[in-house]
Amino acid sequence: MAISTSDPMMGGMKHLRQELLTSGVASEDEIMGCSVSEIEEVSSSAGSFRLPDQYLAFLQAMGRRAGKLFEGTDIFYPRSLGAREAAIDVASGDGESLSLENRFFFGYHQGYKVYFFEPDSPAVFTYQEGHPEVRMLAKSLPAFLQHALEIRVSAEK
């Protein structure tokens, strides 16, 4: 299930890793990827949903932690395994229109916002409680991560 280090997806994650280090958002010992068995656990949690290769590369490169990137947001293993439960909670609220079908929820923010993938799409989507529409946040996971890094860096200035 691991992605080869020569894979283009890993190249993008290596670039992001370098930006995390250069920006000071993370130090070398604050970036940790998932083990093969942890990646397999995440993949198993997806059932028949085919996880995007870029997400598997993310898990391998920094799926456990990445310094201050995403502080307060649960996208890192093992807390990311609770994303579907968070989505179920959000969807059960009055007036909410979040569908749980054919989606892989990979993260959540403080129980009111969830992040997910849809089948055959590299895009990252979100749904926020009280805002009954799905929004595409980025056309790809690397773009989503890059944007999150830019926000984090600007917040620290």
Rank of each mutant, 00 (worst) to 15 (best):
Gly47Arg: 07
Pro132Tyr: 11
Ile88Ala: 09
Ser99Asn: 09
Glu28Trp: 11
Arg103Ser: 12
Phe104Val: 05
Lys14Ile: 07
Gly93Ala: 10
Asp7Leu: 02
Phe116Asp: 07
Asn102Pro: 05
Glu71Thr: 10
Gly93Ser: 07
Asp94Ala: 07
Leu59Arg: 10
Glu118Val: 03
Ser44Thr: 03
Asp94Gly: 04
Leu141Ile: 07
Leu59Gly: 04
Glu150Gly: 02
Met62Pro: 03
Asp53Gly: 08
Leu98Ile: 01
Leu20Gln: 08
Leu21Gln: 09
Met32Gly: 08
Pro132Lys: 06
Arg17Lys: 14
Pro52Glu: 11
Asp94Phe: 07
Met136Ala: 11
Lys113Ile: 13
His131Gly: 00
Gly82Gln: 14
Ser45Arg: 04
Thr22Ala: 15
Lys14Leu: 13
His109Gly: 01
Leu59Cys: 02
Gln146Ser: 15
Val153Gln: 11
Ala46Asp: 04
Leu81Tyr: 13
Phe49His: 08
Ala155Ser: 15
Arg103Trp: 11
Glu150Ser: 13
Met9Val: 06
Leu141Trp: 01
Glu118His: 01
Ala155Asp: 15
Phe104Ser: 06
Ser44Ala: 09
Ser99Asp: 12
Leu137Met: 14
Met10Cys: 10
Ala26Cys: 03
Ala57Cys: 01
Glu28Lys: 12
Tyr115Asp: 08
Ser37Phe: 14
Pro119Glu: 13
Leu21Glu: 10
Arg50Ser: 07
Ala138Thr: 02
Ser35Met: 02
Gln60Gly: 01
Pro132Asp: 04
Asp29His: 15
Lys68Asp: 11
Ser23Met: 04
Arg84Lys: 14
Leu100Thr: 10
Ser121Val: 00
Gln60Glu: 09
Ser97Pro: 01
Glu129Gly: 01
His109Pro: 00
Ala57Thr: 05
Phe76Ala: 00
Ser99Tyr: 02
Pro52Tyr: 01
Asp94Arg: 05
Cys34Lys: 12
Ser43Arg: 14
Lys68Glu: 13
Ala138Gln: 10
Gln18Asn: 14
Leu81Ala: 06
Val36Tyr: 14
Tyr112Lys: 08
Phe144Cys: 04
Gln54His: 11
Leu20Thr: 06
Ser121Leu: 04
Ala87His: 07
Gln110Trp: 14
Leu100Asn: 07
Ala143Ile: 06
Gly72Tyr: 10
Gly93Glu: 13
Glu28Ile: 06
Gly33Met: 08
Asp53Gln: 11
Glu133Thr: 08
Leu100Lys: 09
Tyr77Leu: 00
Glu129Leu: 05
Glu41Pro: 00
Leu21Thr: 09
Met9Asp: 13
Ser44Lys: 12
Gly111His: 09
Gly47Cys: 03
Val25Ser: 08
Val90Tyr: 08
Glu41Asn: 03
Tyr112Met: 03
Met1Cys: 06
Met10Glu: 11
Lys68Met: 07
Leu145Gly: 12
Met62Phe: 13
Arg50Trp: 01
Glu30Asp: 12
Lys113Leu: 13
Glu41Asp: 14
Gly82Asn: 12
Val90Arg: 04
Leu69Met: 04
Val114Ile: 08
Ser44Gln: 09
Arg50Cys: 00
Arg50Glu: 10
Glu129His: 12
Leu21Cys: 10
Ser43His: 13
Val42Met: 09
Tyr55Lys: 04
Phe116Ala: 01
Ser80Lys: 05
Pro78Tyr: 02
Ala57Lys: 01
Asp89Thr: 09
Ser48Lys: 04
